[in-house]
Design a protein around this nucleic acid. Structure first.
Lengths: 129, 129
DNA sequence: CTATGTGCAAAGGGTTTGCAAGTAG
DNA sequence: CTACTTGCAAACCCTTTGCACATAG
């Protein structure tokens, strides 16, 4: 992978992001510094970065793909109320649980948990009181 | 939901299916009996049946949606070699494991396991010998 | 110099939608 | 009757691709 200013900006944008941006969100962000960048370039580079294990793809059914800069093992929960994606840090990797599920072995998985994020849960509690 | 011949044919096609057909596969199947049916009708009815808990959606990242007639609790594994979708019947529902992962509760999840189906595993072993 | 990367515009695939006509209850 | 359903075509959304030009090494 040879250097490109665009890829570097994209990588930095994912790195900085606290939530889990989509390709379009990254596009909007990078455009602030590189107004002429093409959405195609963003897609190409996000794919390249993901394929090289530099960022992580987060597939959410029925939504455009999200991306995550945190490569350390963790899971994701999508808030059923506001739609935000939150990191979940299990004490033990779920992977161990899954391995036993198939005689022929489990080589990977895609998992999205559904629930309420802290903010939405708190907001709901306030209304109830 | 009032009766329609089309919806009934679609429901039957999903019911009969042993694998986990996509909307288009159902469309091809139903067309044998109802040549003028529209793909839009298939989509509308699959969604309707899924929303009413009569069939189940199986979202596989990067693929068109699949559908499953088996409502009883089970999981799904996609074969990394041939792409087929296999049912996995865990002894204990994974759901119980997941609940503890969020303080605010887990209300559901989407999970796709990756591995080799029986047929592909056997085929690979044969070649090795 | 050449292998990669870019921007643009167009194409691609899966899915949904607007509409006028048809049909179940 | 009238609310739901259909077929058709067009629209939609996200993502990829073909191409001529630009650029890193």
């Amino acid at each position: 992978m040879k250097y490109s200013r665009q890829r570097e900006l994209i990588r930095e944008a994912v790195e900085r992001s606290t939530h889990h941006p989509t390709a379009d969100a990254i596009y909007q962000e990078v455009r602030k510094k590189e107004p002429n960048i093409s959405l195609a370039t963003v897609y190409r580079n996000l794919n390249q970065l993901a394929d090289n294990g530099i960022i992580r793809r987060v597939a959410v059914p029925g939504e455009p793909e999200h991306f995550d800069h945190t490569m350390a093992y963790h899971e994701h929960m999508i808030c059923t109320q506001c739609g935000c994606v939150v990191d979940i840090w299990p004490e033990k990797p779920l992977y161990e649980q899954f391995e036993a599920l198939s005689e022929t072995g489990i080589t990977g998985y895609d998992l999205i948990l559904h629930g309420l994020c802290r903010a939405c849960a708190d907001r709901n509690n306030l209304k109830q009181d």
